[in-house]
Design a protein around this nucleic acid. Structure first.
Lengths: 235, 235
DNA sequence: AAGTGGTCTAGACCACGGA
DNA sequence: CCGTGGTCTAGACCACTTC
């Protein structure tokens, strides 16, 4: 018997081989159900999976088309710094530089979407790999959303790791860029002359409320992000 | 009546609110079906969607748990350079610098996984936004996989755009990093003194055969990658 | 109006894997 | 063993959208 995974793979093969070209219309569910000798529901499952994977576009009455691909996708999983370093056998160290509850500067107000009179927790910390500075973490936590953060000293655990464990989030925004370091970056990261930094800026939200905004600064020579993407889920 | 999307959202809410904590076991399908007054199949659909979205982990007999989140996810859609520039109203220009069929240097052999005697198409080109260099594209195309590329001059269309239209791929690998420019980068991109570059390296594959390897170099001051990620599909 | 996908139900059997 | 998730079928009705 044909399972919906079998059908998924057969359809995937037809797309990859070009038998069904990009942008082309493919047979209706009912026809494929006949071809494969199963119910329409089973074909539907397979096609929905392909649609979720971004390979098909489906519209009632209009039918199902192979997506015309216009972008390349890159999916990163950014681990907790400690895990990343320990996983490759490195020696991890964490250092808290500063922690204070303050009203937020205008630039951060915009990121967190909080008022000028509200305060937030500002935490500056440094992550080391084998004794060398690996990441500077400059973080703001919205206390209105995460009051629990007031109770945490962040002496022993980094804000990044603490937040990931304690606070769920619904969406996030990332910005990646290359830049010349600020004097402060340089001071903390002990950069070589002329060495650029790789910056990740991230804001996370829980429903409509901002949770945190962070600027993660890495020395350029010792950092890169790598991803391996499947064009379609294997199932 | 409760649809599986309704159920999906209810379950999602219980996860977000912390009613079902990270790592915790949640009720079995049959129990939830009873609670919501629908079939087990409908609950199954909802839970599978959450599992696909990476929010639940399911094992037979062991039951379903809320995922203990250990990474942040960032999903990028990297558009065709021309589209990117035109979309924000910029003036796009493409310039082919060089195109030759050669045996590949050892470094690229490793990336493409092809033999030392096989040849590939090496194409160097430059993309401009409003008259200023925006991206240097240094590309190798495996002619064994894409013989059609021999017929294309790449005078008028960039290899990036041509490949995306012509050649399907099954998986890709990306590396993002910040670096000091090479003299050649500097020469083509007309960089300011000390300005870093943002480099994207990408290799794509069609099943087991490498399609292409490319090094995309951007001036640091005018480039950043931005993403907005939903923690879970909205459905 | 009619074609196409979206989804539900009831019942059934299977597959995995923990106790 | 047996509880839990995985999946199928047959039939049905609905929802959207193009013709």
């Amino acid at each position: 018997m044909r399972s919906y995974k079998d059908i998924h793979n057969i359809l995937l093969e037809r797309i990859k081989s070009g038998e069904w070209p990009q942008g082309g219309l493919i047979p209706a569910e009912a026809d494929l159900a006949l071809e494969f000798g199963c119910t329409r529901v089973t074909v539907n499952r397979a096609m929905q999976a392909l649609a979720d994977g971004g390979l098909l576009e489906r519209r009632r009455k209009a039918g199902t088309r192979v997506i015309q691909r216009l972008t390349r996708n890159a999916h990163f999983q950014i681990p907790i710094v400690r895990h990343e370093i320990e996983k490759r056998g490195g020696n991890y160290k964490y250092l808290l530089i500063g922690r204070e509850e303050v009203t937020v500067p205008q630039k951060v107000q915009a990121e967190l979407a909080i008022g000028p009179d509200e305060s937030a927790l500002h935490i500056l910390s440094l992550h080391f790999a084998d004794g060398k500075p690996y990441q500077l973490e400059d973080r703001w936590i919205a206390l209105g959303t995460v009051p629990l953060a007031r109770e945490e000293s962040f002496d022993a655990i980094s804000p990044n790791e603490w937040l990931l464990q304690q606070v769920p989030y619904t969406n996030a925004e990332h910005v990646f860029r290359a830049a010349q370091p600020t004097p402060e970056d340089d001071d903390h990261l002990k950069l070589a002359p002329g060495e650029p930094v790789f910056i990740i800026e991230r804001t996370t939200w829980l429903s409509d409320k901002a949770v945190t905004h962070v600027r993660l600064v890495h020395p350029g020579h010792s950092f890169q992000l790598v991803t391996r993407d499947q064009n379609a889920a294997t199932l």
